[in-house]
Amino acid sequence: MSANVNTSLPLEYQTEQSRMNILGFWIFLGAEIVLFATLFSVYGVLYKNYAGGPTHQDIFMMKEVMIQTVLLLTSSFTMGVAIWEMRRNNKKGLIGWFILTLLLGAGFLFMEINEFIHYIHEGATMQTSAFLSSLFVLLGTHGAHVTFGIFWATMVIIQIAKRGLTPVTARKTFIIGLYWHFLDVVWIFIFTFVYLKGMVL
C-alpha cells in the first residue's frame, strides 16, 4: 500500500496512502460541517428561550470576543505559514510557526474559559435555560475541538522533531493544518450567528 510514490508532489502528497488519508480527512471535515450545522440548528431553534434567565446582551462581552476572534484568525494564518514553510522543506520554520499557532490557540482557549467563568458568575449556567444550554454546548464543542487540536498537534510536533520531515510526518502536519483552518471557519459562523446576532437582537 505504500506503492505508487510520486516524488514530484509536495511531501505530504507523495504516497498513495497519504493521498488517501488527506481525502479521508476532507470527508471527515464534511461530517464535521454537518455536526456543527446540527448544533447551529439547535441554537437557532432555542436561542430566544431565555426562560426568565439572562439574555444575550446580559452576558456577552464583545471586547473579549473580538480578541478571541483575532487570536483564532491569526492562528489560522500562522498555521497556513507553517504549512507553507513545510512545503519549502524548512523544518525549523515549520516548527516555529506551528508552536506559535498552538500558543495562539491556547490563548483563545484561556479567554474562552474565562468567558465561561464570567457567565457562570452572572448566573448563566448550562442548566439555566434552553438558550444557555445550546450556547454552552455550541461554544463548548468548538472549544473542545480546539483543545483536542492542541494536544494532537503537540504529538505531531514531537514526531517532526524526532523523525524530521518525512512523507508521514508531513501528511500528519498537513492534516492537522486542515483541521485548524476548519475550526476557524466554524468560529467565523459562531462569531457571526451567535455573538453579533445576539447583540443586534
Binding site: V42, V45, L46, N49, A51, Q127, V137
Partner: peptide, 15 residues
C-alpha cells in the same frame, strides 16, 4: 440537567 428537550426552561421536546 441541560434543557434541550425538556418541557421546562424553554426546551423543545419536538426538537
Amino acid at each position: 440537567g441541560t434543557h434541550f428537550f425538556t418541557v421546562a426552561a424553554g426546551g423543545s421536546d419536538m426538537l
